[in-house]
Design a protein around this nucleic acid. Structure first.
Length: 944
DNA sequence: ACAGCACGGTT
DNA sequence: CAACCGTGCTGTA
């Protein structure tokens, strides 16, 4: 690094606004009623920059009176800005006072914006050999970047990024930072009310810039443009030039860079302290003192000391630790802003860290003498496969708990977990946790099993109220009126600057981790009683808890993916997509972004006027969804091309391109994450990646399934599908004999329905009749209406209604069952599955007919979909247990609602096929037989 | 960077 | 018409 001097120029308003909005949800109000959000936000940023960068020279620049020149050019300039918030207006004089006390120059010139001041100063400093850093998030500044001038941009979640020439070239896709002006001029800026060229947004601006290099060159060559864009831009040449001028930062402001004045020196601590005291900035003052390495005053150092663990905190703002004594109404105390909710700071607690050596031995001895313990692992990653243990928190008594930090060295960590093995593998100690599947997976990577009875608070709450969310923070707030320490306060927001758990100080992580265990334990005590209802308890003990271990095993197993195959698929798709793109552009007469429904709608319906009165979406855009476009497909080639383009793009981006990226490098396999508490009906959901929506319906799409393959040549894939499980359930629950008989005789149920509804022999059912019958059969499960049915088929509203009526005549008990479900829901407020899984329907008696109808459909659908989910869950547990007990090499890999996929060790194939079929068909006894179809193959497609 | 929308993939 | 998840675009910030 060179020893070039560094100058930091701070864009005051940008940071003030940023700070103000950071606190917008939780404004800082001090005891005098003053909103100090903006001041605090700005000071935090300023101190942060000083602390990180230790600049030699620094100044803060303000706007004054707006830009006279720009308003003269364009009246509306910045005219649509909202009135500056009161808190910001108040903030400015305070901030300027603080800056004066800090001996930091305030640069401001009447009639100029901070941009211009900073621009002028940075160019002056450059001539004197300085490196200048412009502290601002505002992209406009990118035009000033040079070899010696950089942007220093705060990023969300903390931290900064420095933009030099290379970064600007990349972000804006330009050769020279000066072209940023052309870019801004073209696309405009709604916040500054720079008009820009009509119809030109970010994407188009980049495209035009790449082609023409500048606004002037573009305007000189508009004859090369096509279609609507040509028209629009030719009509706006003046506006374009004006926009560019407005976007240009001025470099001739009458200000002077004076190195001596700009030197960063020691602040006047006395004065700063006075102002901070008035504002009630306690923590900021400590921070300030640390930043300037001033001797901390007695009480301040005292405050840092008490944070050492073990810590006992009685209540926040306890007088004796208050810096200024007497005044405990600090604006920074969380108690001030979070109303009456309890927090770790207001609640008495005793959280201890257990350090290596004797303490650990004693702790484990104590741990092993417990009968029920809540634990929570802290790790380096959310991905349990790569996660390393950072520590584990334990609690078995409300308000108390312990935290065991784990060493970073692998062998030492393994040694510690070995010491804990007797606890985790103890069959008699109950283990309590929130989302235990995660902890179990992490521990499995250390070769430790979690044995004994489990209580998962997330699962418990899922059964108590499936429609809510089940994260610990929500549960704590709802049931304990308690706000846990946020993970963000430890490691920052999710993003590239987020810290690892490893980087968190022991005292902090102890408070955080033990609090989690403590709260989870308290939630367990709460939920235990609520589960009391006989059925819910059984569902919990016999289904969800055992299933958690099954899912953990399936997820750890993962599935083998043929990346090469997908890559070749991607290339084919690419060629076809390019072809379609060319055809579409030709038909449209111009290039546009086909993937943008907005642009597509404009082309089809504004420009080409393919239809008289196009349908609009609820937001007023033209609707371009598949069902609408396919009506037009036969009349216009372009539509078919668009539909094909859509289909192929979706295939490529969502599956073919995305899946290979999801292969876990350490295992070479794809590990989905099954969510056990998301779907309100009891189904699982799958993500990262979602393996429950891999295409199958179209020829092109189903190729993706060929990429899912057995682990090696000794294995084969087996897919086991429940056939028509939901229809069987509704037939059984409604006791509809006609339908039950059809199933008992192994008839094609849709053909059977068609034969009865259309009154023809089953052998003479036409393809169309069967298809319509199939739609109604499914419709029934979803609580169909005539409107919905006619949308799904070629039938008119009237025909649809007639079909539904005949259907109900054919299956009278089915109709009866549906109204019984709705009545039950009205009386009890919930419906339930065959195993007693409940779904509460608060809208079932709503006076709003639309809302009520939706609740009624749920009343019909939830028991059906949910019972099917219950049944396959039972099958999964039983199969898993048999595979384990029989020491089979075969592994269960995937669940897709009514299908299970296995990696079968070939020598076990015969035994396994029988085992799976038997277990699935006998998982639950209905008055209708369950039927399972087994398929085997070298990939998932073949196995069907 | 994030939220909301439109769209489309599965059962 | 039920239950989900992921991608890309767009406007706001």
């Amino acid at each position: 690094m060179s020893d070039q001097k560094r100058l930091f120029l701070v864009d005051a308003y940008a940071l003030i606004f940023r700070g103000y909005y950071a606190f917008i949800k939780n404004p800082r109000i001090n005891s005098k009623g003053l909103d100090t959000s903006a001041i605090m936000g700005f000071m935090n940023s300023l101190l942060d920059v000083i602390k990180r960068e230790r600049p030699d020279h620094l100044a803060v620049c303000f706007d004054k009176g707006g830009s006279a020149d720009r308003v003269e050019m364009f009246e509306a300039y910045k005219a649509n800005r909202d009135e500056t918030p009161e808190a910001i207006k108040i903030a400015v004089p305070y901030i300027q006072d603080i800056l004066k006390a800090m001996h930091i120059p305030i640069m401001v010139k009447e009639g100029y914006e901070a941009d211009d001041v900073i621009g002028t100063l940075s160019k002056q400093a450059e001539k004197e050999g300085y490196k200048t850093f412009m502290v601002t998030p505002d992209k406009d500044f990118a035009q000033l970047v040079s070899e010696n001038i950089f942007m220093y941009r705060p990023v969300f979640g903390g931290g900064y990024e420095t933009w030099g020439i290379a970064e600007v070239q990349k972000k804006f896709e330009v050769d020279n930072p000066l072209q940023v002006i052309d870019f801004l001029g073209m696309m405009g800026d709604s916040s500054d009310n720079i008009p820009g060229l009509p119809g030109v947004g970010e994407k188009t601006a980049k495209k035009l810039l790449a082609e023409y290099g500048s606004m002037e060159n573009l305007l000189a060559n508009t004859h090369e443009l096509k279609g609507k864009m040509k028209e629009k831009i030719e009509g706006a040449k003046e506006l374009g030039l004006l926009s560019k001028k407005l976007a240009t930062i001025m470099l001739d402001v009458p200000v002077t860079f004076n190195a001596k004045d700009f030197e960063l020196e020691q602040p006047d601590l006395q004065k700063v302290t006075e102002i901070f005291q008035e504002l009630e900035f306690r923590q900021l003052l400590t921070n300030f003192e640390k930043t300037f390495a001033v001797e901390a005053i007695e009480t301040a150092s005292e405050e840092t000391k008490i944070k050492a663990t073990p810590s006992e905190v009685k209540s926040a703002g306890a007088g004796q630790f208050s810096l200024f004594g007497g005044d405990t109404n600090s604006a920074e105390a969380p108690t001030e802003t979070t109303y009456e909710r309890k927090t770790a700071e207001t609640n008495s607690h005793f959280y201890q860290s257990v350090l290596p050596g004797m303490a650990t031995k004693l702790f484990i001895k104590n741990l092993l003498s417990q009968s029920s313990v809540c634990f929570d692992t802290e790790t380096t990653s959310l991905n349990p496969i790569t996660a390393e243990l950072v520590g584990i928190a334990f609690s078995w008594e409300t308000g108390k708990g312990f935290y065991l930090p784990f060493p970073e060295a692998k062998d030492e960590a393994q040694a510690l977990i070995e010491a804990l093995r007797p606890f985790f593998e103890n069959e008699t100690i109950q283990k309590i946790g929130q989302n235990l599947k995660y902890d179990i997976k992490v521990l499995a990577k250390y070769n430790v099993q979690v044995k004994g009875k489990l209580f998962d608070t997330m699962l418990a709450h899922y059964l108590i109220n499936p429609d809510m969310r089940h994260n610990m923070d929500v549960l704590a707030e709802t049931y304990l009126n308690y706000s846990p320490i946020s993970i963000e306060s430890l490691i920052g927001k999710n993003g590239k600057n987020q810290l690892s758990m490893r980087d968190v100080a022991l005292e902090k992580i102890t408070e955080y981790a033990v609090e989690d265990a403590d709260i989870t334990l308290q939630l367990k005590e709460h939920f235990e009683n609520e589960l009391g209802e006989a059925n819910t308890q059984k569902l919990f003990d016999d289904i969800e808890i055992p299933l958690l271990r099954v899912l953990a095993a399936m997820e750890l197993e993962g599935i083998n993916l043929d990346k090469d195959f997908l890559n070749s698929l991607a290339e084919q798709l690419n060629t076809d997509i390019k072809d379609l793109e060319a055809k579409i552009y030709e038909a449209a007469g111009e290039a546009f972004n086909i993937a943008s429904p907005k642009q597509l709608g404009d082309i089809l319906f504004d420009k080409m006027k393919l239809v008289d009165k196009p349908k609009k979406t609820k937001t007023g855009q033209y609707a371009t969804s598949e069902d609408i476009l396919s009506y037009l497909a036969k009349d216009h080639d372009i539509i078919q091309h668009i539909l094909d383009f859509r289909g192929l793009s979706k295939l490529k981006s969502t599956y073919v391109d995305a899946l290979p990226l999801q292969v876990e490098p350490t295992t070479g396999r794809v590990h989905t994450d099954y969510m056990q508490t998301v779907a309100a009906t009891g189904r699982l959901s799958s993500n990262n990646p979602n393996l429950q929506n891999i295409p199958i319906r179209t020829e092109r799409g189903r190729q993706v399934r060929k990429a899912f393959i057995p682990r090696n040549d000794d294995y084969t894939l087996l897919a086991a599908d429940y056939s028509q499980i939901e229809l069987r359930i509704i037939a059984a629950l409604s006791e509809e004999e006609t339908m039950i008989e059809a199933f008992k005789h192994g008839e094609d149920i849709h053909a059977s329905t068609a034969s009865k509804v259309f009154n023809v022999p089953i052998g003479e059912v036409t393809r169309e009749q069967r298809s319509n019958a199939k739609t109604v059969n499914f419709g029934i499960i979803y609580g169909v209406s005539a409107f919905g049915l006619s949308n799904q088929t070629d039938l008119s509203r009237g025909e649809a209604k007639e079909l539904i009526d005949t259907y109900y005549e054919t299956y009278p008990k089915l109709k009866n069952y549906i109204s019984k479900q709705v009545d039950f829901a009205r009386d009890h407020g919930y419906v339930q599955t065959v195993l007693g899984r409940r779904r509460y329907l608060k809208d079932i008696n709503s006076r709003n007919a639309v809302v009520r109808a939706a609740a009624e459909r749920n009343a019909v659908n939830a028991p059906i979909q949910g019972s099917a989910a219950d049944i396959i869950k039972i099958a999964m547990i039983n199969i898993y247990n048999k595979l384990e007990a029989g020491n089979y090499k075969t592994k269960m890999l995937l669940q897709v609602h009514d299908e299970l996929v296995f990696d079968v060790y070939k020598p076990e194939l015969e035994a396994i096929s029988t085992l799976i079929k038997t277990e699935m068909e006998s998982a639950f006894k209905l008055s209708v037989p369950l039927d399972v179809e087994i398929g085997i193959g070298d990939n998932w497609l073949e196995a069907h």
